[in-house]
Each structure stands twice: as structure tokens, then as C-alpha cells.
Design a protein around this nucleic acid. Structure first.
Lengths: 139, 139
DNA sequence: GAAATATAGTTGACAACATCAACCAAATGG
DNA sequence: CCATTTGGTTGATGTTGTCAACTATATTTC
């Protein structure tokens, strides 16, 4: 392999984003990529704080702060007091947030299924392993 | 494989971007990701026009128009009259642009090399095939 | 126990990337 | 020759990202 790696990965991600965008728009879900990542993270993380998301998604805290504010405003998540640390709040999905992320997951599953057409279980397993190794190599 | 595909790919791309950013900053190359893609595309495309880039990189024409303006201003590319179509101009790299993209390619090669540590030729070949198939499946 | 330092989160300013609409000049089609 | 399409530019706006400065709280040090 040569240094077209980056190029193909960019193209793949761009195509994936575009597909997800279309699916999201088609279903009028009205949610952004970073909102999706945050909601998923909150759903999967007990005692989730803004800082948990900062660490988990490797993003700047100011960016996450703004995203949280957006999602609270949109009624997808709620803040509750964090007894363990008065500086922070615990974040939980509301019923609307859970419903939304479930719908998004369905669209993600559909796009992933399309992406994987014609590829064997073995090829996908190698792919997964390679991606995880590459992530590890860079961090 | 499940729908964590998107998640891992996002993480990989983010890590890659971050690495490239650090490498670019360390060498004081002062160039952005989209500039890099454009310069590479121009270098590899005979009779390159703004529209060629729009089609090749699948980006909005207004975005490409602005990028071209930036790169001309920075002295990395030049516009020459397109005799075949008075509406458009041909884009070519200047000496400075060629030098810059060469340096970027070196950094890309270094990052790719790090990414690939511990992975066999066969695994990388499967990876490449899977990525290209996925791109094709989405378009 | 108080002071110094670090941390969690917020806000503002700015940059990079992206999309859409409106426009003009040129090319193409009927 | 006129209508339509295309290539490119600009403005407005949205999304994602980074950095600095700030406040309140927690932790560390003495």
C-alpha cells in the first residue's frame, strides 16, 4: 500500500457522511453528525459528564459544551446534578433522545449493510482488525 | 461486523487528521487539508479546471472556487486561459506549489507508514479492497 | 487550615469546511 | 436565434474545530 491510504479513507468517510446525511434528511431526523456521536456516547456511558465525552470522543471541551447546550435545548438530553462533583452535571438521554438515537442507529445499520455488500465475513473481520490497529498505531 | 463501522472509521480519520495536522505544523508547511487535496488533484490531472476538481473531489463549486482563490493568492497555483472554454481557466501548480505538495506527500508517507506497522501486505491488500468496495457500494 | 494549583465547564473570537441561492458570461441544444 | 445549461463567483448561513479567558470547585501542598 502507498500513501493513497489517506485519500481513500477520506473518500470513504465523505461518501459515508453523505449517505448518512441523505438518510437523516429523508427521515427528517434533523440531527448533526456530532450530535449523533454525543447521544450515542451518552447512551453507552454510565455517569456521563461533559468531560467524559471530551475524553471519549477526543474533542475540545468548548466544542462539547456547545453541543451539550444544543442538545439540552432540543430536548434530547437532560442535565442532573452530580453529587460527586459540584462542578459538573450528569447527562442522560430523554425519551425523545432515546427515540431519536434509535432511529439514527437504524439508518446507520442500513448504510453499513449497503457498504458491506459483496464483502465476506472474513474480509470484514480483517478490515475491522486493520482499522483498529491503525487507530492504535496513531495514538 | 456491526454498525460500529462508522464509529471506528470516524475515529481513524480523526486520528489521521490529527497526525497530519501535527506533522504539517511541525514542518511549518501552513497548509489545510482541503488545500492538500486540491493541490494533489491538480498535480495529477491534465487540463485541470475548477469543475474538474468539483467532480473529482465531489465538493460544492463555491467551496472549490474559494479554495482556488486562496491557493492562487498563496502562490501555489496559477490560472491560465482555457482556449477550449472561455468560461473557465486551466489550473497548474507553480514551483512553490510542487515543492509544497512534495513535502506534504513525504509527511503523508511517514504517517501512513506508522499507521501500517504490524500489518501484513495481505491484510493491507484486503483493507484496500474493502475500502474501495465500500466506496463503490455507496456511489 | 489556608494558599496554590489543577480541573470542569462556559463563553467569545476566530478558522476551516460545507451548502444553498443568486448572479453573470459562455456554451450548447433545438 | 432563442432558450436552456454550464462554469465560475459571491454572499449568506450552518457545522465542526481550536484557542484563550473566565468562574466555580476540587485537589494538592505546606
Amino acid at each position: 500500500m502507498n500513501n493513497s491510504t489517506g485519500k481513500y479513507l477520506f473518500t470513504l468517510i465523505q461518501s459515508y457522511r453523505s449517505e448518512m446525511r441523505s438518510a437523516i434528511d429523508a427521515k427528517s431526523l434533523n440531527i448533526n453528525a456530532m450530535h449523533v456521536q454525543c447521544l450515542r456516547f451518552i447512551a453507552e456511558t454510565p455517569s456521563c459528564t461533559a468531560n467524559s465525552i471530551v475524553q471519549g470522543l477526543t474533542r475540545d471541551k468548548s466544542q462539547i459544551s456547545i453541543l451539550i447546550k444544543d442538545m439540552v435545548k432540543k430536548g434530547w438530553i437532560e442535565k442532573t446534578a452530580n453529587i460527586a462533583d459540584k462542578r459538573s452535571q450528569l447527562l442522560v438521554l430523554t425519551a425523545a433522545g432515546r427515540e431519536l438515537i434509535d432511529k439514527v442507529r437504524q439508518e446507520e445499520a442500513a448504510v453499513s449493510k449497503r457498504m458491506q455488500q459483496g464483502l465476506s465475513e472474513q474480509e470484514l473481520a480483517v478490515f475491522q482488525n486493520v482499522v483498529q490497529t491503525m487507530i492504535k498505531n496513531l495514538n
